[in-house]
Write a protein that binds this DNA or RNA. Structure first.
Length: 302
DNA sequence: GTCCGGACGC
DNA sequence: GCGTCGGGAC
């Protein structure tokens, strides 16, 4: 395929996706310029490995309580962990506060606008930095997440994307098809991601409702390998340390503020006391809990 | 059972 | 590159 063909084909795809986005974009509260760059960053961190429908109420109360980085930077850790609630992966909450402290302290409460400065912040990796640059600052940069990888691979290559980290080929593809025009590039990132979230889903894509079905190499090829394992295998949950850690933390969040859970109560949370002890130790290592001399647990009071 | 708008340590 | 880190929805 000649380069000009690729550009033309993509221009048509971008146009259809853009129209679809205008008509179908979910009305999430951090979209359409209704929040600050910090608000966008918070939404992206909360969305890491978590569905948007679950994020929305958390984001709203979080931003009401801590509207900017400085406010979050000064909040008690225990309150931050409690407010994270059942979003999962609570280390994200601590990293988000560390990020807020860096932004407030090093950048005068204004998010930096370069990829290198953003990825240097705690909890901000390639995806989140790119998403903030594109969605909050309107910069032209290829955003690469699991949805975009899946959609681009299907549409332009005709195969399912593989698990693990994004390959060099996937990154090259994302950069190649990213519209040259800055504004179009932002809409492109958002609409491709949105399509992956609500139409071009992993297991059961709604090709009948897809605005670019006509342009899709994967559909043309008969959707080869659909439903096969493509993404990196996910961990089980039942019986894992993650479940036990979650139980311990949930018990501490449920306590009256400033109080602790005595050792005998802790031991009732899980019957494998070896695993329980290891999980308590790892929560302590992460800075998510504090262990008193008598073995009682509490959220960090610092 | 599978998947979900990843980041990080090693 | 691989293991770990929640919890919910379908």
């Amino acid at each position: 395929m000649k380069a000009q063909d690729a550009f033309d084909a993509n221009a048509e795809v971008a146009l259809r996706l853009g129209a679809w986005w205008e008509a179908n974009a979910r009305d999430l509260p951090w979209r359409f310029g209704r929040t600050t760059p910090w608000g966008v960053l918070v939404s992206e961190v909360m969305s890491q490995q978590t569905q948007m429908s679950r994020v929305v109420p958390y984001w709203q109360s979080w931003m009401e309580r801590w509207p900017d980085a400085r406010a979050l930077a000064d909040a008690p850790k225990a309150e931050v962990i409690t407010a994270w609630g059942r979003l999962g992966y609570p280390r994200r909450a601590l990293r988000l506060q560390e990020c807020a402290q860096a932004v407030a302290g090093q950048y005068a409460d204004e998010l930096p606008q370069t990829y290198d400065a953003l990825t240097a912040l705690p909890g901000i990796g390639d995806y989140t930095a790119s998403a903030v640059l594109s969605f909050a600052f309107g910069r032209r940069i290829a955003v690469i997440d699991t949805n975009i990888r899946r959609v681009l691979s299907r549409v332009f290559v005709g195969t399912e994307s593989r698990g693990g980290a994004a390959s060099a080929a996937e990154r090259a593809l994302a950069n190649r098809v990213l519209p040259k025009d800055v504004k179009r590039s932002v809409t492109w990132n958002q609409s491709v991601m949105e399509l992956g979230a609500v139409v071009c889903t992993a297991k059961n894509p709604l090709c009948d409702a897809c605005p670019i079905a006509h342009d899709c190499a994967f559909l043309k090829a008969g959707r080869p390998g659909l439903g096969e394992k493509r993404t990196r295998p996910r961990q089980r949950f039942q019986g894992t340390d993650r479940q036990v850690r979650g139980l311990v933390l949930a018990a501490l969040r449920a306590l009256p503020a400033g109080t602790s859970l005595e050792r005998s109560k802790v031991e009732q949370l899980w019957k494998d006391h070896g695993q329980l002890a290891a999980c308590v130790a790892s929560l302590d290592d992460d800075g998510l809990i504090e262990i008193a001399k008598d073995g009682s647990l509490s959220l960090p009071q610092g």
